[in-house]
Nucleic acid binder design. Structure first.
Length: 954
RNA sequence: GGGCCAGUGGCGGAAUUGGUAUACGCGCAACACUUAAAAUGUUGUCCGCUAUGCGGUUGCGGGUUCGACUCCCGCCUGGCCCACCA
């Protein structure tokens, strides 16, 4: 037998596949289609990364399995080649980006081919190819026509070192996502895409796709839909008004001031009325100069300036309230203005406390007992009462008095009714002395607002609506008078530390009170703090949050409104290496789209790729390119010099794969119909909020235009974990820890590299690379290879029963694991089978062939080679995926484990389906078991059929 | 601060309607083959002990159960994403 030599067999099969166009998808096939997609790579100068190989192999396995299941599979590949690294390289080396890109894609292509991926190379696309970006520009023009692409002067994120505008998505913690440098905000005229018009659908349509739940959650949170109200506050003595967005309309009576973002447009309109205009301007100026990093620093102290002379009118109660500006209000979210409710919003409270603004409690947190003996009984009589919750501090230690009600089991604090006309402190002291016997309590302070509780007061046999007023008391000394016998029967008292108290408290109302002493350490049900009863709210007093919201909605100044965190997509880049935006500025006609027949607007060669200091693209310096004629009047005009962002080309590439060489359309309708939507799209988690959202947006737009057949582009989306360097950090060229797949293929062969990438750990988790472990999978391949020697070509030998069962089980498990992307366990199952087969002297050919077929998607070169050596003429991927025989999945001889009192003591052999009695008798006869049960009475026997018996003795 | 996830040998990791924890692989050790080494093969490899047996062990502490890596409650640690979003 020949030695296993990947250097010989891998190029051989790769060549045959290519010559036979084995993996070219047939548009006209009558088979069911299956579209597998991976995120097309950015061809960087560093060459391919072992991470690329991991996700490509995973989809390759699925694509190959689908072919064996009888599908016509499309598994295409291309290059997402526009981008900053190439441009930066061009700036440094004065090489044309197109030439760099060519070199890099050639290298990537060679690397991918060396790994035996079953890509359809006939459909290769490249986003930087004018025949491709012609259609990127064309789609842009369609959006332009529908008003979805528009130019706007607006503050944008500006990277100080890249000198380009960035989308919000490209700013991470105030820093440029690409270079890590600081960013600030600048007013620039930018092209925008109105993705927010699709915000609702981008959320709602998620219900119809098979994405991992975490992906859906991430997208939803990113879009950030928030239901609330827009409230119009008119300004005294002015025609202007301020719209604010709030999700807590019910707190409007507590809105004691308004806050505008420093950039708010109203300020300009009412300048003449502002008495301290200088100070306001200075604040605006400061806010503008602050970089995004400074603005997003956590726990930054609140700043702001009042617009003196300006008062807004609260539409709920007609009160005049001051208007401030502060950078804690974000210009681009909601309306860029808020009504501040310091009593019920932490940020507003911080601001109000700093600037001495009034704080009015308008919500009593409500605690309604909904379960247990003290559940509020709607049908019974109800009485209402004010009561003080006395939190009593020890005279010398940091301990507090805990009270337990002996009749009900409630645990909390001393509580006493407040008589009419009585002060809280007064009532508390009276109650403390009465109930606890401590003679010298002192009132310290009130603790926040009232807590509204509704419960069944079993002692009094009635419902109670209680308004609890938490207050802090301190004992001056330990002087105590023995309480009466009657009191002793009611309560039991103890001194507890803060931590002990948290554990002691049994009810949410007490927990809320305690939280005001020991901030946030006790955790009441958060629902209690959110929903409550209105107070200090005039007509709404006594209503619940929900009722009040409904009532307030009737006011003409208030209307329901939905807001999103998602903003429109900044679509301009002041860079060279991107798709030119196909728009012309005519001196007479203004903004004119380039005619569709003029596309593509191609990139001219330039000498200097450096962006200009004014922030314009290097294209602005190419006069012969910039100067053109107006498509409408024929007069002199200038081309738009901004280019599209990196994300443009990847927002529709899967559509182009269906018809990669079409010169008339971005893709033929029939071919789109034949192949889309993508059945399974795998990619990185990091692309879920950017690329995936953009791609779904473009697809929805094209769907609305009748240009693609489905609303959603991808049926199923999964993610892979990142491959890290051996020490667990990210691989990067600058750290010099990038593992080169070429040397691995050279040393171990492509099949070993593929197999290791799949075996190293769970596919969806990030994992550190470990080159020494490849030896293990290489050994496995060698052992599989050697099994050839044991084949009985005539298939005359019988296989032992348990081995045949194992083969069927392996077929089942491998098939299921591939579907769930549990490649690591699929491979270990295959290893177990090979270990077993090795022990045989000989085995029938047809059984071994099953194994060859199910390993072939993982290690296709070995699969193909073994398959042909067994005398088969066709490729493995043209064979049918083996079907396991359900009747052979299990043997009749089974092992049952025996427990005595839940401890494992023995195992026994039995026949499938044996009755409890048989198993029990066998178990009791076993020496190991007998030892444990002799002399003891058997109380109970638990029998799990065909699995386990548990004998319980006294 | 909010959301999501994870924690199992020296290492990567298996094990889910709750049923023999550590499969599979790496590494390590011993042995065989060899002049030798590599490669290969065989055996062993969670911890403790009075050792053919017994006890303990899945981050920590409780709970439910005949039985818990798995379910529930409370903590600790680590990671990822979002973050002044009204």
């Amino acid at each position: 037998m020949e030695k296993y030599d990947p250097k010989k067999i891998e190029p051989k099969w790769q060549k045959r596949w290519e010559e036979d166009k084995s993996f070219c998808a047939d548009d006209n096939s009558t088979k069911k289609k299956y579209y597998c997609l991976i995120e097309f790579p950015y061809p960087s100068g560093d060459g391919m990364h072992v991470g690329h190989i991991r996700s490509n192999t995973a989809m390759d396995i699925i694509a190959r399995k689908r072919r064996m299941e009888g599908y016509e599979v499309l598994y295409p590949i291309g290059w997402d080649a526009f981008g900053l690294p190439t441009e930066n390289y061009a700036i440094k080396t004065k090489t044309q980006p197109a030439i760099v890109t060519k070199k890099n894609t050639d290298n990537f292509r060679k690397q991918l081919k060396s790994l035996g991926f079953s890509f359809d190379w006939s459909r290769e696309v490249n986003t930087t190819d004018p025949t491709y970006y012609k259609w990127t520009q064309w789609i842009f023009l369609q959006m332009y026509k529908k008003g979805l692409a528009y130019k706007a002067k607006m503050p944008i994120n500006w990277c100080l070192s890249c000198k380009i505008g960035l989308a919000n998505e490209e700013v991470v913690n105030g820093r440029c996502e690409r270079c890590g440098g600081p960013t600030d905000r600048r007013e620039k005229s930018q092209w925008m895409l109105a993705i927010t018009k699709y915000a609702d659908r981008l959320i709602d349509d998620l219900k119809d796709v098979d994405f991992l739940e975490k992906i859906k959650t991430l997208e939803k949170n990113w879009i950030g839909r928030s239901e609330g109200h827009e409230v119009k506050f008119s300004i005294c003595n002015s025609q202007f008004s301020i719209d604010v967005f709030t999700t807590r309309l019910d707190t409007i009576y507590g809105a004691t001031y308004l806050v505008l973002s420093p950039e708010h447009t109203l300020i300009k309109n009412i300048e003449s009325e502002i008495e301290n205009l200088e100070a306001v301007r200075e604040y605006q100026q400061n806010a503008r100069c602050k970089t995004e990093i400074e603005r997003t620093e956590a726990d930054r102290e609140k700043t702001g300036v009042e617009l003196k002379g300006i008062k807004a009118i609260n539409p709920a109660n007609g009160k005049k309230i001051p208007v401030w500006i502060s950078d804690y209000v974000i210009a681009t979210y909601g309306t860029g203005a808020i009504m501040a409710v310091p009593a019920h919003d932490d940020r507003d409270r911080e601001f109000a406390e700093k600037f001495g603004l009034p704080i009015i409690d308008v919500i009593e947190p409500m605690v309604t007992k909904i379960g247990g003996d003290d559940k509020f009984r709607n049908e019974e009589k109800t009485s209402e009462r004010r009561a003080v919750v006395a939190i009593i501090k020890h005279w010398s230690e940091d301990k507090y008095l805990a009270a337990k009600w002996l009749k009900t089991g409630w645990q909390g604090f001393v509580i006493g009714g407040i008589e009419s006309g009585e002060e809280i402190g007064e009532a508390g002291i009276r109650e403390i002395v009465e109930e606890t016997g401590y003679m010298n309590p002192k009132f310290v302070k009130k603790l926040g607002g009232t807590i509204h509780a509704r419960f069944w007061q079993s002692v009094k046999n009635e419902n109670r609506v209680a308004h609890f007023e938490p207050a802090l008391f301190e004992l001056i000394d330990g002087a105590i008078k023995e309480p009466t016998e009657e009191e002793k029967k009611l309560h039991q008292f103890s001194w507890l530390t803060k931590e002990e108290m948290c554990a002691f408290i049994t009810h949410d109302d007490m927990a809320i009170a305690w939280n005001r002493v020991y901030e946030g350490q006790c955790k009441p049900n958060p629902e209690c703090e959110r929903s409550g009863i209105l107070i200090n709210s005039e007509a709404c007093n006594g209503l619940t949050t929900r009722e009040a919201t409904g009532k307030l909605e009737e006011l003409p100044e208030i209307k329901p409104k939905t807001t999103f965190k998602l903003r429109d997509w900044v679509f301009s880049r002041q860079r060279y290496w991107g798709e030119p935006i196909p728009v012309i500025q005519c001196l007479l006609c203004g903004e004119m789209p380039v005619g569709e027949d003029e596309l593509p607007v191609t990139l001219p060669p330039v000498d200097n790729y450096m962006p200009t200091d004014s922030g314009e693209s290097p294209l602005a310096n190419i006069e012969e390119w910039v100067n053109t004629i107006c498509p409408s009047c024929g007069g002199p005009a200038k081309r738009e010099t901004d280019t599209m962002p990196n994300w443009a080309g990847s927002s529709w590439y899967w559509l182009r794969y269906t018809d990669a060489h079409n010169e008339e359309k971005f893709a033929d309708t029939n071919k789109l119909q034949a192949w889309t939507p993508v059945d399974w799209y795998n990619g990185g988690m990091e692309h879920v909020t950017l690329h995936l959202l953009y791609a779904r947006f473009w697809n929805k737009f094209l769907y609305d235009e009748g240009l693609v057949p489905t609303v959603e582009p991808f049926i199923k989306r999964t993610t892979h974990g990142m491959v890290l360097a051996e020490n667990g950090v990210k691989m990067s060229k600058s750290k010099g820890n990038v593992v080169n797949p070429d040397s691995l293929v050279e040393a171990f062969g492509a099949d070993s590299v593929r197999l290791y990438e799949m075996f190293m750990g769970p596919f969806d988790q990030e994992i550190a690379w470990n080159t020494s472990s490849i030896a293990g999978v290489r050994r496995f391949i060698e052992r599989l290879w050697k099994l050839q020697e044991k084949i009985d070509l005539k298939s005359e030998v019988e296989m032992p029963d348990d081995t045949r069962v194992l083969i069927e089980q392996t077929i089942k498990k491998v098939g299921e694991d591939i579907e769930e992307m549990k490649f690591n366990t699929a491979i270990s199952t295959l290893m177990i089978l090979v270990n077993k087969l090795e022990k045989l002297q000989t085995m029938p050919k047809h059984e071994f062939e099953k194994l060859v077929l199910i390993v072939s998607p993982f290690i296709p070169h070995v699969g193909e080679e073994l398959w042909s050596r067994l005398g088969n003429k066709d490729y493995t991927h043209k064979e049918l995926w083996p079907v396991f025989d359900t009747s052979k999945l299990e043997t009749n001889n089974i092992i049952i484990s025996v427990q005595v009192n839940g401890k494992f003591r023995a195992t026994l052999s039995a026949k499938r389906g044996d009755s409890e009695q048989i198993v029990r008798d066998k178990a009791c006869m076993s020496e190991n078991v007998y030892k444990w049960i002799s002399g003891k009475e058997i109380m109970k026997v638990i029998y799990v059929k065909d699995k386990l018996i548990n004998i319980l003795t006294q």
